[in-house]
Every structure is written in C-alpha cells, then in structure tokens.
Amino acid sequence: MIARLLTVAALCLPLAAGAHDFWVNPDRFVVSVGASTGLSMQVGHGDARRTSPIPSRRILRFAAWTPGGDVIDLRGDGKLAPTEAGLHLLVLETDANAQSHLPADRFNAYVKEEGLWPAAAAREQRGTTGRDAIERYRRVAKALVQAGAPGEGNQDLATKRVGLPLEIVLVAPLSDPDGGDTLAAQVVFEGRPLAGALVKLTDLDHDATPAAAQVTDRDGLVRLRRPPPGNWLLNVIWTTPLSGAEGIDFDTIFSSLSFGVPPAGLSSGHAPT
C-alpha cells in the first residue's frame, strides 16, 4: 500500500527539475567516423544545470565499448574519437563515498518527488519521519554515441547490460524499424529487474522540467512515447534502507542513460557533418 500511494503521489507532483540528475553529456550524439566529440559530466537541470564538480579520485571507471567489442579507457581524455561505424556505449561509475545530509522536510519532499518508497516505508516503520536523514550515494551513467549515420553499423550496445548496480537498458535500438512510436527501457537493480521505480525522460535541450515520467512494472519496464528528434535523458534513483549503525540511514544510487534521437528519415545514406 505504501509503495502504491507513494508512486501515485510522485506522478501527481509537478515534474520539477531534478537537481539530483547526473549524466555523461557528449557534445554530439552522432559523430563521423574519424572525428571526435567532447565529453562532460553534467548535473542538475534548467538554471541549476552545471558541469559536475566530482573529483577524479571518485571515478571507478569511465570507458567506452566499441561496436567491435573493444573497451577504451576514457579517464583523463575528455573525448571520444570513434574509428568504426556503429553504436558506442559510454559508461561512468563512481564510488559510494559521497554523503548527503538533509533536514526532515527536504528529505521527505525528495523521497516523495523521486518515488523512493523504500525510504518512506522505513522511516514510517521506524518512527523517524520527522528526523533529518543521511544517505551515502554513488552515481552511474551511460551514454549512447553513434559513429557514422544513424543506424549504420552494429547497434547491439543499445541493449547491453554492463553490470552497473542500477542500470537503464533500452529494450531495442532506437534505429529498430519495429520500435514504432514507443521508447521501451528496463531498469535493472543488482542484476534483476526493478519494479516500482520512477523513471523520468528529459529533453536535454529544454531541460527545466522532465517531459514524461513512468513507474516500472513488475518486469522493470517502462514504455514511453518515442521522443522527437533531439538529445534525451532517462534517469532513475533507488535507495536501500540501512541499519543506521554507522550513522548512515540509506544507500542511494543515481542512474542515467543519455542518447540522441535522429530526425525521421535520416538513414545510412546520410552521414553526420
């Protein structure tokens, strides 16, 4: 009952800008083979959007999977220079050494907005709803970059799991002609589909508020209307209640997937410029 009520409440809230959102932001999501695109880490939306100040020591991995199966370490480089056509998958993972300390009212609002019903349930059961909360957190982010014209080359990495603790995976490549008007994605937590998690879709070119939001079903799936051409972000947050023995109440993961949607009709005969 708590999960259902909190999910409904989250979806009824105005879709406020996610100050917690974090993602890998390529300068271009479609790039010519042999060219390069700059990469940055972004956090927040609208007026609060900025380059993430996360220190390099907290980054456990920042790598790109190529269509041919190679893995390229991107730490310290700041750019991707594809040498083969096809979809490239960028993955960033931080450690869990960051902490957030929030007063009760702000933490409760954050829990409600993000649909974090495990936290709400734990605080209600423990009688701590009126107390401040401390969470430790990590961030994981994926980005899809196409080398060559949209749909050209191997597209399998769109649906690849890479073993992140909380991961968003597309059900089919965006270039799949059978996808129709639907954007389907699955949320995986510790290797298993996650039900009851709130997924938000944001237009990165007009990002003051999310464009859509949906709660994952029993199979961890969301099915959203396929967004129009542009640069887009899917994000989800999940938390696990802790005993508090170490002075920390929750273990939280922020996860995102950024990608580009090409204009309709743009095919392998039209390379990016």
Rank of each mutant, 00 (worst) to 15 (best):
K79H: 14
F250L: 10
A122E: 11
H88N: 09
R226T: 02
S243Q: 08
G69S: 11
P118C: 10
L266W: 09
Q214F: 00
R50A: 15
I59L: 15
H45Q: 14
K160F: 05
G180V: 08
M41W: 14
I2E: 09
H101D: 12
R50H: 15
I237N: 10
E114R: 09
V188C: 07
L92T: 02
D21I: 11
R123H: 00
G220T: 04
D249Q: 03
N235L: 00
L266A: 11
P272Y: 01
T252M: 13
G196P: 01
L15S: 07
V169T: 15
A158Q: 05
L201Q: 10
L201M: 12
V171T: 11
H45A: 14
S52K: 09
G163E: 08
G44A: 09
A149K: 06
L183V: 11
M41Q: 11
H20L: 11
L157E: 09
S256A: 13
K160R: 15
T182Q: 13
R126A: 15
G38N: 11
D21L: 09
D77E: 12
A172Q: 13
E135F: 03
T159D: 00
A96M: 13
G78P: 10
N154C: 10
L224M: 14
R49L: 09
L74S: 14
W117N: 03
Q186G: 03
W238T: 11
L170Q: 05
S258C: 02
T202E: 00
L201E: 03
P272M: 02
P241C: 05
N154Q: 10
P210N: 01
A147S: 10
P263G: 05
V145G: 02
H20A: 14
A158Y: 07
A133T: 11
A120T: 03
L144G: 01
K160D: 02
Q186K: 13
R126P: 01
A141N: 02
L204K: 01
L102M: 10
R138H: 07
V188E: 06
S243H: 07
Q186N: 03
A212M: 06
R126C: 03
L116N: 07
D205K: 13
D251P: 09
V261H: 04
G76P: 08
G68S: 15
D27L: 08
